[in-house]
Design a protein around this nucleic acid. Structure first.
Lengths: 249, 249
DNA sequence: CGGGCCCTTGATCCGGCTCAACATTCGTGG
DNA sequence: CCACGAATGTTGAGCCGGATCAAGGGCCCG
């Protein structure tokens, strides 16, 4: 098993790792999750995992790569409403709603695990696990609110800066960061559809952040060179992610 | 007990009424909710029900008036991230998160019911009620996503049109509509902070909608004169609200 | 070695912001 | 019931952030 930078083993399970950040899990909990992550399959970039109007069934866990929730307008405009990074679970709650109201697709090549409804119920029958899953869902909701703040009241550069800070914390939680940098395997068009802008303007705003010495991008690797200033300009307050030590590497 | 237009009685409980829309509730469920709505107190407009950083405890149900979730930037800019209309419950889930990451305040004069954590657990111990509450929470999340769509990919007039359509459906569910009109007891500034715009531009955009014969506003009463065209221009698809008959009066 | 996709850059345009003045309504106390 | 002040709504002029349109360059992959 390959050792990855953040410590822990590569396939030791981003889901387990993430959920442990929300509360102690015992070996049986871990085993239950490992089971989940066993039946994993690769999905190429740009594929849909769920289409709008589908019936919900079970959960989908992202093990590797970036996916997103999104919706399209009739004119083709896309708005991304959430990122799903390794460890994130997208829970189409069983029997409660009977039609999905948004699509879920991959942004990069991914490995995902589909969890059947019964398996999901098994996981939730373990109290500690249920509690961590619930916390994770509440954090996802907090992220939605923060994105609303981002779109409504921040400028282009601030939106990007805020997004990059958020991703640093989220990826750190699953050991996918290298100091203040991480792989961001998405295009500028994806960033545009996330931040409600144009890819042209994303490009210019990224340039601005680079020129200010706040970020660097080489290939798909993003480095936050001056995290304090970046956080400051975006008014990034990691409290909404509800992690103990968001700044710890 | 005063009879209100939508049918049902005025204080028969917007919460009950809303939750019934998500699934059948028996008399005992109704009684449990009635209990909740008994201990109600008035709150003036512009007051905070919850401040950022507070410890969560229990739930708050809005019985009358409009409240909202919001956050402020350091420069004073406000972004409203959700409306709480009569029947809506804002659930600070007990023991899961230990700090609230956003504020909740009233937009108009309100009547609210605070629900102690134990009382909340009592409600959730009733399966049908628990299920409806869970559905309501999922719908709230879907609304957050739709607002992201609104802010990211719709123009000023479209945002307003979409918001007005959404409120029509939500208020209709609790019997607070009169045909295609309803009371919207909030200011243009509030609308601006909701839609990520300026109150000046809200004013002009409202004027545009009026001139196009799509809406009318007299006092706090808003009328959607040409609902089909309004829905069309905003690409409003009520499916995300997960109600059976969103268009029924 | 060719064809997409993605990134980059320039020129121009426009939706929505800013600033400012004024009108109206509302709540309040006299 | 009126008078007042404050909050809200309305309107104009000018500006600016980000969109649009368009062209070219790099790079990956077949």
């Amino acid at each position: 098993m390959k050792v990855v930078p953040g410590g822990g083993t590569a396939m030791s399970g981003p889901v387990l790792r993430k959920l442990q950040g929300f509360g102690r899990l015992d070996d049986a909990d871990a085993a239950a999750l490992a089971m989940l992550e066993a039946g994993t399959r690769p999905v190429p970039a740009g594929a849909d995992l769920i289409c709008e109007g589908d019936r919900p069934e079970g959960m989908i866990a992202v093990i590797e790569g970036f996916a997103c929730r999104y919706r399209l307008r009739e004119n083709g405009a896309r708005q991304i409403m959430a990122y799903l990074v390794p460890g994130d679970i997208c829970d189409f709650d069983s029997s409660v709603l009977n039609r999905i109201d948004h699509a879920v697709g991959t942004l990069s090549n991914c490995r995902v695990a589909r969890v059947a409804p019964e398996a999901g119920r098994d996981l939730r029958s373990r109290p500690a696990l249920a509690r961590s899953l619930r916390t994770a869902a509440l954090v996802d909701e907090a992220i939605l609110r923060e994105w609303i703040m981002n779109l409504g009241r921040r400028s282009a550069v601030e939106r990007l800066a805020h997004l990059f800070c958020e991703l640093l914390v989220r990826l750190r939680a699953v050991g996918l960061t290298f100091g203040n940098s991480y792989d961001l395997p998405i295009t500028q068009l994806d960033l545009a559809d996330t931040t409600g802008m144009t890819s042209v303007h994303v490009n210019r705003s990224l340039g601005e952040l680079k020129r200010a010495g706040l970020i660097e991008r080489t290939g798909r690797r993003l480095t936050l060179c001056d995290l304090p200033r970046l956080m400051d300009m975006a008014e990034f307050r990691p409290n909404y992610l509800h992690r103990e030590r968001p700044e710890a590497a």
